[in-house]
Write a protein that binds this DNA or RNA. Structure first.
Length: 532
RNA sequence: UGCAGCGUAGCUUAAAGGUAAAGCACCAAGCUCAUAACUUGGUCGAUGCGGGUUCAACUCCCGCCGCUGUAACCA
C-alpha cells in the first residue's frame, strides 16, 4: 500500500471526529493528547505532519439535544464544537485541521464519494425490517430487547416493528479482500487484542449495512433520493477526507487526496473499532482509494477502578482537571501511567503522587539543584566541558548515548509509558550521580575542574530528558530549555530553527559557556486536595 | 453459552524455561547543592487455584476460579 505514497516524509494522523451530543469528556481528551504527542514526535523526526481532529455533527441525537437546549441543531453544534476547540487549546493540542461534518464542502466530498461507490454497484435500495427503538433511533436485535420487548436503554419504550426501505452498502462483497488485507498488513489493526476481535468478527461473515434513514432530517440527503438521509457513519468517516482539503481547494476527492492521502494512523477508542477497521477500509476499496496504514484502538478509562457514567456521577471533567493541575500534568499522567492500548485508571492520589515524584522531585528538583550549584560554583554559566573527552564508561554518558534511539523506538510503537520510563532512568541516575560525586564537597576542596565536569554532565542529561519528553510535556520542556538559556518554546516553531532529533536527540549536544537564567522551580509540587 | 484476552508485592508495571525486578506508597538512616528535595537501607510476594511436561515453569500444556472485551449498525 505504501508504494503509492508520493511523499514518504509526510505523516497524517487522525483522532475520531467526536460526536457532539455532549461536552467533551475525558476519553476524547485522552485520544487527542496521545495524537498530539505522536504528531509532535513525528515533527521532531523531520516529517511533515498533519493532525486531524474535529466533530461529527449529524444524526437524530444531535437534533434532539439541540431541541432540548432550545437551539437550532447548527447553533448547538457550533456551541459544542467551540467547547472542543477550547479544550484542545487548554491542553496544548496543535491540530492542523478541525473537520466538521456539517461543513458545506464536506457535503460535496460525501456526494462525490457516494457517487463512486454507487457507480461501483455497491449501494442498493433494500428493505430493513426489525425492532426499532424510537428513543435510540436504531434497529435492535430481538435478543437485545427486554422480555416485554422494551429497549434496555429505554425501558419505558416498547420497540416498534419497522419495515422500511433503506440504502445499503454491500459490505459482504468485501469479506475476502478484507481478510486478505488483515493477512498482508498484520499491523493494520493494533494492538493485537483489537486485531483478534476484528478477525473473529469478519470471520463470522459480513452482512451489508444500512447507510440511510427515512425519519431523519439532520444530515445530508442521499444523492438522487432526498427522501432518505445518509446515516451518520457514512458521512462521519469521510470527514477525514474532507479535512485534507486546503481552505482554497475546490472540494473534490482528487484535491483532497493529493498530498496527505492515505492516512498513516487513525487513533481511536476501542468502541469504534469496527467502523474503522472493517467498514471504512471496505468503503475505500469500493471507491478505489488507497487504505490507511494503521488503526490503533486504545483502551478505556475508569475512575478509581469504576466505570465512569453520568448516573454514577463519577465523570472526570477534563476542563476541571486542566484548570486545576495544568496541561503538562494531565498529559503526563495519562501517557505515562497508562499503558497505551490497555484500559487505565484515573485516581487523583496516584495522579498527584506520580507527578510530584517524577516531574517535581526527580526532574524539576534535579535541574534546580544543579543550576543553583552552577550559579554558585561556575558563575552562572554552563561549565565548558567537552563531552567527548569524558571517560567511555561514564555512568551518565553511557545511559545518555543510547537513550535517544530507545525512546524514539518507544514513540514509534506508541509506547508512551515506555518512553517516559526510559527517560526517567537517566534522570534518576543523575540524582544518584550527584550524591555519589558530591560536587558541593569537591567545591570546598577546591577541585574546580571536577565540579564543572559533574555539573555539565548532569545539565546535559536534564536537557536531553527535557527534549525527549517534549512531545508529552511541552510546557515543562520549554521551561527547562529556557532555564538552560535557550530561547526556545516547544509550542512555537517560530522560536526554533531546528529542533530535530539529530541535533537535540542525543547526548552531548549542550554547549558550554552558555549563560542560563536565574534558577527557579520548573514544576511546582502539587498539593493533595483536602478531601480525597 | 461461543470466541478472545487478562490474573506477579497495597497500587502501576518488568522479567517471552535458568537465583522473581523497578517505580509509587509506607518506615528508618544518611546528606545538605535542591521544590520537606535527594541518596541508602528496610517492610511487603514463594507470580489466582489444582494438576502435568522439564534437571529447571511467572513463562509451555490441561482443568478450575475470578475479571474484562466481544457476539452487526454503540462516536
Amino acid at each position: 500500500m505504501n508504494d503509492t505514497r508520493t511523499q514518504p516524509n509526510t505523516f497524517a494522523l487522525t483522532t475520531p471526529l467526536y460526536y457532539v451530543n455532549g461536552l467533551p469528556h475525558i476519553g476524547s481528551a485522552y485520544t487527542t493528547i496521545a495524537a498530539d504527542a505522536i504528531a509532535r514526535f513525528q515533527k521532531l523526526r523531520g516529517r511533515s505532519v498533519l493532525l486531524i481532529t474535529g466533530t461529527d455533527e449529524h444524526g437524530q441525537k444531535i437534533q434532539r439535544s439541540a431541541i432540548d437546549a432550545g437551539r437550532s441543531p447548527q447553533e448547538r453544534c457550533d456551541e459544542i464544537a467551540g467547547k472542543f476547540q477550547d479544550l484542545w487549546q487548554q491542553l496544548g493540542i496543535q491540530y492542523d485541521r478541525f473537520s466538521r461534518t456539517t461543513a458545506p464542502r464536506h457535503e460535496a466530498i460525501v456526494k462525490e464519494f457516494f457517487g463512486r461507490v454507487w457507480d461501483r454497484g455497491d449501494i442498493y435500495l433494500g428493505q430493513q425490517t426489525g425492532w426499532y427503538c424510537v428513543a435510540c433511533e436504531e434497529f435492535k436485535e430481538k435478543r437485545d430487547l427486554l422480555e416485554g420487548g422494551q429497549c434496555p436503554l429505554h425501558p419505558n419504550q416498547t420497540a416498534e416493528w419497522r419495515d422500511e426501505r433503506n440504502y445499503f452498502f454491500a459490505l459482504s462483497k468485501y469479506q475476502e479482500r478484507l481478510e486478505d488485507l488483515y493477512q498482508k498488513q498484520p499491523d493494520f489493526i493494533q494492538p493485537e487484542i483489537r486485531r483478534n476481535e476484528v478477525l473473529s468478527f469478519v470471520k463470522g461473515g459480513l452482512q451489508d449495512f444500512s447507510i440511510s434513514r427515512v425519519n431523519l432530517d439532520w444530515g445530508f440527503p442521499v444523492p438522487g433520493d432526498p427522501d432518505h438521509t445518509l446515516y451518520v457513519w457514512f458521512d462521519a468517516l469521510l470527514g477525514y477526507v474532507t479535512a485534507l482539503l486546503d481552505s482554497t481547494d475546490e472540494p473534490t476527492l482528487e484535491n483532497a487526496i493529493a498530498r496527505w492521502w492515505p492516512i498513516n494512523l487513525h487513533l481511536i477508542g476501542k468502541d469504534i473499532l469496527r467502523f474503522h477497521a472493517v467498514y471504512w477500509p471496505a468503503m475505500l476499496m469500493s471507491a478505489d482509494l488507497p487504505l490507511p496504514d494503521r488503526v490503533f484502538g486504545h483502551g478505556f478509562l475508569t475512575k478509581n477502578g469504576q466505570k465512569m457514567s453520568k448516573t454514577l456521577g463519577n465523570i472526570v471533567d477534563p476542563v476541571e482537571l486542566v484548570e486545576k493541575y495544568g496541561s503538562d500534568a494531565v498529559r503526563y499522567y495519562f501517557l505515562k501511567e497508562i499503558e497505551f492500548g490497555k484500559d487505565g485508571d484515573f485516581n487523583e492520589t496516584r495522579f498527584i503522587n506520580i507527578l510530584n515524584a517524577d516531574l517535581a522531585n526527580d526532574l524539576g528538583n534535579l535541574l534546580n539543584r544543579t543550576l543553583k550549584m552552577a550559579q554558585k560554583y561556575c558563575g552562572g554559566k554552563v561549565p565548558k566541558v567537552n563531552p567527548e573527552e569524558l571517560e567511555c564508561e561514564h555512568p551518565l554518558k553511557t545511559i545518555g548515548l543510547c537513550l535517544g534511539e530507545r525512546v524514539a523506538a518507544a514513540y514509534e510503537s506508541l509506547a508512551f509509558h515506555q518512553a517516559c520510563e526510559e527517560t526517567l532512568i537517566l534522570v534518576r541516575s543523575c540524582n544518584k550521580f550527584l550524591d555519589d560525586r558530591a560536587p558541593w564537597t569537591l567545591y570546598k576542596k577546591g577541585e574546580q575542574q571536577a565540579v564543572e565536569e559533574v555539573l555539565y554532565v548532569v545539565l546535559e542529561s536534564v536537557r536531553l530528558a527535557a527534549y525527549l519528553l517534549c512531545a508529552i510535556v511541552p510546557g515543562l520542556s520549554t521551561a527547562i530549555y529556557q532555564q538552560l538559556g535557550f530561547e526556545i518554546d516547544f509550542d512555537d516553531p517560530s522560536t526554533w530553527k531546528d529542533l530535530s532529533f539529530d541535533l537535540h536527540g542525543s547526548w552531548g549536544k549542550l554547549d558550554g559557556d552558555r549563560t542560563f537564567s536565574k534558577p527557579s522551580p520548573v514544576f511546582a509540587r502539587l498539593e493533595m486536595p483536602e478531601t480525597p
